[in-house]
């Protein structure tokens, strides 16, 4: 793919970029911090969190404050990531976030970065919230589960400020792979999983239970059974004879090292002869 090389200005300095790539990528690549909650490189820009806003400084642009995840760079684009206008809006947004997800320490950290340590707004607190009053509805868990893992266990329920994320009818799901991709990708630490012996419980997803595989060697539970195929596929090319099956990563590494060493020793021996 041959994209034209262009020059962009961020906070006064020049940087190289490929024409059409999102500005946030350019910034991050060059160590410039632009906060975001719903941006994930492997997924299409979603535009939900509005935290990555920047101000376009070029003349004649109608909309100055735009999200940098949907700002496709062109030659000569000039933006400021922390202008007065941007900070003004970002702070208000952070206040809204603190009110929406009062329990998230990650959010509080982010807010403090911009000097926001309290919110004027009414806090949303739900009793027994499966997402720990920390969900900001960024959609990453839904999109990862659907578009990356293909499991489609959870989705948005309802609309507007009553929107929630969970399984259909808030019931336990048969489809969950137990991969924990949702928890990994969650920017506010809202999603909770508990490993209880041989069962992984998705506490946030209506206590959906997923069976875990036991390592043949050490007995540790190391991965969901449903991911069996995918794990084995990963190792297929090195494990054609199925020797490394049902092993936890540690034991598998040890076994592979032993195997490789054995092969190497054989080769050396062959040479030696």
């Amino acid at each position: 793919m041959n994209a034209k090389e262009v020059q962009v200005y961020i906070n006064g300095k020049t940087y190289g970029a490929s024409e059409g790539e999102p500005l946030i990528g350019v910034a991050r690549r060059n160590g410039i911090f632009i906060p975001s909650l719903c941006y994930e490189e492997s997924l299409e820009p979603y535009g939900a969190c509005r935290m990555c806003i920047v101000e376009i400084k070029n003349e004649g642009v109608k909309k100055r404050i735009v999200t940098s995840c949907t700002l496709h760079v062109f030659d000569g684009l000039s933006v400021e990531t922390d202008s007065e206008e941007v900070l003004k809006h970002r702070k208000v947004l952070l206040e809204l976030y603190l009110a929406q997800a009062p329990n998230s320490s990650k959010l509080k950290e982010l807010a403090l970065k911009y000097g926001v340590n309290r919110t004027r707004f009414r806090q949303k607190v739900r009793d027994n919230d499966p997402l720990n009053n920390s969900c900001v509805l960024c959609g990453l868990c839904v999109r990862v589960c659907s578009e990356v893992m293909g499991a489609r266990v959870i989705s948005f329920i309802g609309r507007g400020e009553k929107t929630r994320v969970n399984t259909p009818y808030f019931e336990q799901s048969e489809l969950c792979l137990g991969c924990r991709a949702c928890a990994e990708v969650c920017p506010t630490g809202a999603i909770e999983f508990r490993d209880d012996g041989g069962i992984r419980v998705a506490a946030s997803w209506s206590n959906t239970k997923v069976e875990l595989k036991k390592c043949n060697v050490c007995g540790k539970y190391y991965a969901p059974v449903k991911l069996d195929k995918r794990i084995d596929t990963l190792y297929y090319y090195r494990d054609k004879d199925g020797e490394l099956r049902d092993m936890c990563p540690d034991c598998r590494r040890k076994a592979m090292t032993r195997k490789m060493t054995l092969i190497a020793e054989n080769e050396v021996e062959k040479y030696a002869k």
Binding site: S155, F156, I157, R159, Y169, L175
Partner: peptide, 24 residues
């Protein structure tokens, strides 16, 4: 719920998506 499940199976649309639509 049963109806949505039937639709989900017949159209091959995940139940989570149908539920999302029905509640939206």
């Amino acid at each position: 719920k049963e109806t949505l499940k039937v639709v989900s199976e017949t159209l091959n649309i995940p139940l989570s998506k149908l539920f999302s639509i029905a509640t939206f």
